[in-house]
Design a protein around this nucleic acid. Structure first.
Length: 121
DNA sequence: TTTCTGACA
DNA sequence: TGTCAGAA
């Protein structure tokens, strides 16, 4: 099992966490977990979703649809919607970041100006 | 609150 | 392995 975790670049604890959340459901042999190719595939989708900033909850909805809708039509519609929301969110953050950067630059500028004044230059 | 991690049995 | 406490 540490093999699957290492291969995916996550800890076994994270795999357990995703299982608890219902994102993956590895087969059990006794108390041991068997991760199928399907589980590994789902994990890769989960990791990708995480990289793109989606919550596990959103990722779970997406995975559920993947199972429920063989044509993936509804899934793609929902996905496109989520992606749009995510983009809007990131764009807002971008604006906020730019504002923060401008403010910090101004503070730096003012601070240096005072130093020069204090030194009598 | 969400997403984990560490530790203990 | 399961579970609880806690970090970020």
């Amino acid at each position: 099992m540490q093999e699957v975790a290492r291969q995916l670049g996550v800890t076994h604890r994270a795999l357990r966490f995703y299982e608890d959340k219902g994102l993956i459901e590895p087969e059990r042999v006794g108390s041991m977990r068997i991760y199928s190719r399907r589980d590994v595939g789902r994990m890769q989708l989960i990791l990708r979703g995480k990289r793109l900033g989606f919550s596990l909850r959103e990722i779970q909805e997406f995975l559920d649809l993947y199972d429920a809708d063989p044509e993936h039509v509804e899934q793609m519609i929902r996905l496109a919607g989520r992606v749009r929301e995510r983009l809007l969110d990131l764009e807002k953050q971008q604006v906020a970041l730019e504002e923060t950067i401008r403010e910090l630059r101004q503070i730096e500028h003012d601070a240096m100006a005072r130093v020069k004044t204090a030194r009598g230059r």
